[in-house]
Amino acid sequence: MSISVHHIAKRFGSFVALDDVSLTFPSGELVALLGPSGCGKTTLLRLIAGLESPDGGSVSFDGDDATRRGVRERQVGFVFQHYALFKHMTVLENIAFGLRVRPRASRPAEAEIRRKVHELLQLVQLDWLAERYPAQLSGGQRQRIALARALAVEPKVLLLDEPFGALDAKVRKELRRWLRRLHDELHITSIFVTHDQEEALEVADRVVLMNRGRVEQVGTPQEVVEEPATPFVADFLDLHDHGPAWLIQAKIRHRGFELRAIDQELQTA
């Protein structure tokens, strides 16, 4: 499903979170909303999900106006930075939640729910954790369970708010590659928010760079790196040529040996 937002504006008191933003997210792509904190990227994501309502402008799904639809009707899967797993439920119950709260007429049978949950657990490669509680899982495992829970309701769109922000560097790298592979399998229109340019450039099909409630540039990772549209983009992606680096009177000690560098020029690799 493709998503587009037209002339979206949102304020919180006197703070302008989004200022006349228009964007189109093509069907089946993995798009990153990238920018410094306070640039409005999370607000935009929450507006698309229906967790916030815009002060002006509209949101449409596949060309249909969805601005007035509540979060329940939008059929979006939302993944939170801090997982938001239900602590009193097992992993199995967490993933089954979206199916169990359906009206009786459209609710699958118990056996069907279990089959589906196990299918999703296999997809996120955590099949052995079904009976555990969220508190017994690591951060990376929790986020994968949160993703499985969001996918259980077969959403048309997957929205991820800084999905790897609470994880340590190593897990973050693993998990973002895993997300890329998962997206290649599922081809569900996905948007994720991040402030980490490396993450956005490595994972996304398309990057939206935002600053102070406005869109600075939209393009593939290659496009934004090779032709930054504004000074902000070049600055944020750290694309300036800083010239050679110098080690001046540096000492490096290792196992009793001492290495002394006196005004040594370093070559960038």
């Binding site: 979006v76 939302f78 938001a84 239900f86 939640f97 309701v153």
Partner: peptide
């Protein structure tokens, strides 16, 4: 977020 998550799942 817990309530938002529940709502986004259709509750």
């Amino acid at each position: 977020e817990l309530e938002e998550a529940a709502a986004s799942l259709g509750a």
